[in-house]
Lab assay of single mutants.
Amino acid sequence: HNLTITQGKLFFHYNPKLCLSEIHKMEEVSGTKGRQERNDIALKTNGDQASCENELLKFSYIRTSFDKILLRWEPYWPPDFRDLLGFMLFYKEAPYQNVTEFDGQDACGSNSWTVVDIDPPLRSNDPKSQNHPGWLMRGLKPWTQYAIFVKTLVTFSDERRTYGAKSDIIYVQTDATNPSVPLDPISVSNSSSQIILKWKPPSDPNGNITHYLVFWERQAEDSELFELDYCLKGLKLPSRTWSPPFESEDSQKHNQSEYEDSAGECCSCPKTDSQILKELEESSFRKTFEDYLHNVVFVPRKTSSGTGAEDPRPSRKRRSLGDVGNVTVAVPTVAAFPNTSSTSVPTSPEEHRPFEKVVNKESLVISGLRHFTGYRIELQACNQDTPEERCSVAAYVSARTMPEAKADDIVGPVTHEIFENNVVHLMWQEPKEPNGLIVLYEVSYRRYGDEELHLCVSRKHFALERGCRLRGLSPGNYSVRIRATSLAGNGSWTEPTYFYVTDYLDVPSNIA
Rank of each mutant, 00 (worst) to 15 (best):
Pro338Gln: 11
Tyr230Ile: 07
Pro338Phe: 09
Asp503Leu: 06
Gly467Asp: 01
Ala399Asp: 02
Leu364Val: 08
Pro244Lys: 07
Arg483Pro: 00
Arg318Lys: 11
Glu378Ala: 09
Thr272Asp: 03
Glu404Leu: 04
Leu487His: 00
Lys357Thr: 12
Pro403Phe: 10
Ser251Val: 12
Val358Arg: 10
Phe246Ser: 12
Gly325His: 12
Leu364Glu: 15
Arg313Cys: 14
Leu505Ser: 09
Arg466His: 12
Glu495Ser: 08
Asn477Glu: 07
Val443Pro: 01
Ser248Leu: 03
His454Tyr: 14
Tyr212Phe: 14
Lys361Gly: 07
Cys391Phe: 02
Gly308Phe: 05
Cys391Lys: 11
Glu310Gly: 10
Lys233Glu: 09
Leu237Arg: 07
Glu265Gln: 12
Cys468Asp: 00
Ser398His: 11
Ala335Tyr: 06
Leu487Trp: 05
Val439Thr: 10
His211Glu: 15
Asn477Lys: 13
Ile366Gln: 03
Asp506Pro: 09
Ala336Asn: 10
Asp229Ser: 10
Asp273Thr: 02
Ser492Ala: 09
Glu279Arg: 14
Thr307Tyr: 14
Leu280Pro: 15
Tyr504Met: 04
Gln384Trp: 06
Ile410Gly: 04
Gly207Glu: 02
Glu247Thr: 05
Asp323Glu: 12
Leu213Val: 13
Val329Arg: 07
Val297Cys: 06
Asp408Ala: 02
Cys382Pro: 01
Thr386Asn: 06
Arg400Thr: 09
Glu442Gly: 08
Ala399Glu: 05
Cys267Gln: 06
Asp222Tyr: 12
Thr502His: 09
Phe298Ser: 07
Ser203Tyr: 15
Pro475Phe: 06
Phe419Leu: 08
Tyr375Asp: 00
Ser315Cys: 07
Leu453Arg: 02
Ser274Ile: 03
Glu404Val: 05
Leu440Gly: 15
Thr340Ala: 08
Ser284Ala: 15
Phe215Gly: 08
Ala407Asp: 08
Lys432Arg: 05
Phe226Asp: 07
Ser344Asp: 04
Glu282Trp: 07
Ala263Val: 12
Arg286Tyr: 08
Ser458Arg: 10
Ile209Glu: 06
Asn383Ser: 05
Leu487Lys: 15
Pro496Gln: 02
Thr497Cys: 15
Tyr500Cys: 15
Glu430Phe: 07
Phe355Pro: 04
Ile276Pro: 07
Ser479Leu: 05
Lys406Leu: 07
His454Ile: 11
Ser257Lys: 08
Val480Gly: 01
Arg481Trp: 06
Glu452Gln: 05
Arg471Cys: 08
Val443Glu: 00
Tyr504Trp: 12
Asp450Gln: 11
Tyr500Arg: 12
Ser320Thr: 09
Ser257Met: 04
Asp229Phe: 12
Thr340Asn: 14
Leu280Phe: 14
Gln380Glu: 05
Asp385Arg: 08
Ser274Met: 15
Asp204Gln: 09
Val299Leu: 08
Ser284Met: 14
Lys236Thr: 12
Leu470Asp: 01
Asp229Cys: 07
Trp493Glu: 02
Ile377Val: 09
Ser363Leu: 09
His211Lys: 13
Ala399Phe: 04
Gln380Asn: 09
Pro244Thr: 08
Thr494Tyr: 03
Glu265Lys: 08
His461Tyr: 07
Ser223Asp: 14
Cys456Tyr: 01
Glu452Thr: 05
Tyr259Leu: 03
His211Leu: 10
Gly412Asn: 15
Val501Asp: 02
Arg471Asp: 02
Glu351Arg: 13
Gly308Asp: 11
Val439Ser: 06
Ser458Thr: 06
Arg376Met: 09
Pro475Met: 10
Glu452Leu: 14
Leu379Met: 09
Asp506Tyr: 07
Arg471Leu: 05
Asn208Thr: 05
Glu227Phe: 14
Glu260Ile: 07
Thr401Leu: 06
Thr347Gln: 11
Ser342Trp: 01
Ser341Val: 14
Pro270Arg: 03
Lys302Met: 13
Met402Leu: 05
Asp385Leu: 06
Glu465Cys: 13
Ala220Thr: 15
Thr347Pro: 05
Asp385Gly: 13
Thr241Leu: 06
Glu224Trp: 10
Asp291Gln: 12
Phe289Ala: 03
Gly234Met: 13
Tyr498Pro: 05
Asn477Leu: 12
Glu452Ser: 03
Cys382Ile: 01
Ile276Leu: 04
Glu227Gly: 14
Ala381Met: 01
Lys460Glu: 07
Leu213Ala: 14
Val480His: 01
Glu495Pro: 05
Asn326Gly: 01
Pro403Thr: 08
Leu369Tyr: 01
Glu350Gly: 13
Gly489Phe: 12
Glu356Asn: 13
Gly322Lys: 03
Leu379Cys: 09
Pro434His: 08
Ser367His: 06
Trp242Glu: 04
Val439Asp: 05
Val327Asn: 06
Gln429Cys: 11
Glu282Ile: 05
Phe337Met: 14
Asp229Thr: 11
Tyr504Ala: 07
Glu452Val: 05
Arg376Leu: 14
Phe285Pro: 11
Arg469Trp: 09
Pro354Thr: 11
Arg316Ala: 13
Cys269Thr: 13
Glu362Gly: 03
Arg319His: 14
Arg469Pro: 03
Val501Pro: 01
Glu217Asp: 09
Lys233Pro: 13
Arg481Lys: 14
Ser268Met: 12
Lys361Ile: 14
Val457Cys: 14
Ala488Phe: 04
Pro475Glu: 06
Arg376Thr: 10
Thr347Val: 12
Cys266Asp: 13
Leu235His: 09
Ser248Ala: 11
Gln380Ser: 09
Gln384Pro: 02
Arg218Pro: 09
Lys236Gly: 12
Arg466Leu: 04
Lys317Phe: 14
Gly322Tyr: 03
Glu351Asp: 12
Phe289Val: 11
Ser367Arg: 07
Cys231Trp: 01
Pro434Tyr: 03
Leu369Gly: 02
Gly322Gln: 09
Asp408Glu: 01
Lys278Leu: 06
Gly308Cys: 03
Phe289Lys: 03
Val480Gln: 07
Val359Cys: 08
Pro205Trp: 06
Ser283Leu: 14
Asp503Val: 11
Leu379His: 01
Val443Tyr: 01
Ala263Leu: 11
Gly436Asn: 02
Arg318Tyr: 03
Tyr292Trp: 04
Lys361Cys: 12
Thr494Arg: 02
Leu321Thr: 12
Pro508Val: 13
Glu224Thr: 07
Cys266Tyr: 03
Pro338Cys: 06
Arg301Asn: 13
Met427Trp: 05
Glu249Val: 14
Val331Thr: 15
Gln256Thr: 08
Ala488Leu: 03
Lys287Val: 14
Val397Arg: 14
Arg481Tyr: 08
Asp385Pro: 08
Glu451Pro: 12
Cys391His: 02
Ile410Arg: 02
Lys460Cys: 14
Thr272Phe: 05
Thr415Ala: 06
Thr303Gly: 07
Tyr441Trp: 00
Gly368Met: 14
Glu362Lys: 07
Val214Ile: 14
Pro496Ala: 02
Asn435Leu: 00
Gly325Asp: 15
Ser268Thr: 13
Tyr292Ser: 07
Phe215Pro: 00
Leu505Met: 02
Lys460Met: 12
Leu277Pro: 03
Asn490Met: 07
Ser315Arg: 11
Asp250His: 12
Glu258Met: 03
Ser458Pro: 03
Tyr445Pro: 01
Tyr212Arg: 00
His371Ala: 13
Asp291Leu: 07
Asp291Gly: 07
Glu217Thr: 13
Trp242Gly: 10
Ser344His: 13
Asp503Phe: 07
Tyr445Leu: 08
Val296Phe: 08
Gly374Cys: 11
Cys267Leu: 09
Arg459Cys: 14
Arg390Cys: 10
Lys287Phe: 06
Ala463Ile: 10
Arg446Ala: 13
Gln256Pro: 06
Phe289Ile: 10
Pro434Leu: 01
Lys460His: 08
Tyr500Asp: 13
Glu310Asn: 14
